[in-house]
Amino acid sequence: MESLVIPALILVVVAAAVALGARAVSRRVAASNAAGTAAPATDPVELARAAAAKLTEDQHRRLYALIAQGQAMAAIKLYYEATDAGLRASRDAVGALAAHPQPYRSPASAEPVQDPDDDDTPQRFPYRYRAIASKGDVTREVSSNMLNDEIYGRIRTLVRSGDIEAAATALTKHSDITLKQAREFIALLED
């Protein structure tokens, strides 16, 4: 009988520790739910809008450049350092921004900015942007003052999501190339 007392005491102590730990965790979860920090935005478009609003214009441009280059880890790191969000929140935000590209909106402007994809005439920038794609021995270049990192990032996102025709149409809209040339360029972007 004495040989069972010590294991029984150990079992009681372990059960009490587990119960106290579970109670502490449930209190933390309840407190964070009450504070609103544990419930992330479930709508990815809203998450992308909120994430883009936390970035400066330069951070926004650099983030989309990294996304366009396929450097997801660098983009997450940039967002993490820029916003002091948690690592998981940064990962989710960058994923939402890649899937649902957002134009930069300055904090001073109260009225919503029209999405550049909805415009009939694309914006012309004071510089020429060069987009280069290659596969094997084949290299294609598109140079236009209607392209920038953000637009090219959206085109690459369309390619990664499998919407090749929309990517080619967007490329022709923001450059002076034909749809056939755009399709050839897009074919080089496909992995």
Rank of each mutant, 00 (worst) to 15 (best):
P126L: 00
V142H: 03
T37D: 08
A24L: 07
A16E: 01
F125N: 11
S26C: 08
L47Q: 13
K135S: 15
Q114I: 09
K135C: 06
E141C: 05
S134V: 02
R49K: 13
P44N: 05
Q71I: 02
I155T: 11
S134K: 15
R156T: 14
G21R: 12
L78K: 11
L87V: 07
T83M: 02
K54M: 07
R154K: 11
V142S: 03
D118K: 14
R154Y: 05
R28K: 09
G36R: 03
H100Q: 10
A31V: 08
R88S: 06
K135P: 06
R49G: 00
V29A: 07
R88D: 07
E141T: 15
V14H: 06
D119Q: 13
I76F: 04
A99H: 11
V14I: 15
A99G: 15
A22E: 10
P44G: 10
R62F: 03
D43S: 10
G153W: 05
A98D: 07
A52E: 05
A53W: 03
M146D: 04
P126D: 11
E150Y: 15
L47E: 13
S134Y: 13
R154N: 07
R154P: 03
A85H: 13
L87D: 08
R23K: 09
D119F: 10
G136I: 09
T157N: 11
A98V: 01
A96E: 01
V25L: 14
D84L: 08
A68F: 04
S26F: 09
R27I: 05
P101R: 02
G95F: 04
I132F: 00
D58L: 05
A110Y: 02
A38V: 07
T157V: 01
M73C: 00
A110V: 14
A31N: 10
Y64C: 06
V18H: 05
D119M: 09
